[in-house]
Amino acid sequence: MSLRIESLRCRLGGREVLHDIGPLDARPGELTALIGPNGAGKSTLLRAIAGHQRAHGHFILDGRALDDEPLETRARRLYYLPQSTETGSRLSVFETVLLAVRTLAPGDGPSALRRVRDTLARLELEPLAERQLTALSGGQRQRVAIAQALAREPRLLLLDEPTSALDLHHQLQTLDWLGEHARQHGTIVVLAVHDLTLAARYASRLWMLDAGRAVAQGPPGEVLTVERLREVYAIEAEVTWPAEGPPRVTPLAASHRTPSRR
């Protein structure tokens, strides 16, 4: 039981932006990080899986094809968190998270309220429960969006740079929570991230994209090599292996060479 992507192609503005991606696999109970330079196609890939972007190919979740399912049915099995959480809505934080639960099963039952309360408490958002979204900082809005995602308890979570607006404390805390949530609920989590050390630390598998192509997938130790970073990211980097734990990537300098596929 997992997520599998096969033969994925996607065109945007008359240009092919994803070229025959797959097979890519993500497993339940662990985080899969989607990495690659700007314009590699990470957001497009996540949007295509979520059904927000028209694409050709196969997405198979737990043995069932996702690509034929209408948006409403698909949204019951997966949740996509976009990169930007900017909104002019005057909903309160509590109402916003409640909305994520209610759109699945309308009704005013106490179990939904408890689910919202527990999620807010877990993400340390309870003090902000009555605050309007427009009165929150970018980082706080991003945490509320993550609370929406977790409160829905989907089978598949697709997160586009979920920590981009967060400070270091909340970055680590959020990734801890996501890992814990995945283990507890058997959720498949695919998240696009730019920080390679964080990706290596929290993700069990990496998908590396470059110019709309999947160039590598596997455990961080296999994917993050000095040669591949030079080729894909055009950087000179040092990859070190501590006695325990995942590799650490230290960027040293921007390479003068243009990556081959760009």
Binding site: A50, G51, H52, L71, E72, R74, A75, R76, Y79, Y80, L81, P82, S84, T85, E86, T87, S89, L91, E95, T96, L99, A100, R102, T103, L104, P106, L133, A145
Partner: peptide, 20 residues
């Protein structure tokens, strides 16, 4: 009512919540 409230968050977030 729930779909319309979700639409207030923006089209992308509404779509994530299963609203067309």
């Amino acid at each position: 009512r729930w779909r319309l409230t979700a639409l207030g968050l923006g089209a992308t977030q509404a779509r994530s919540l299963g609203v067309d």
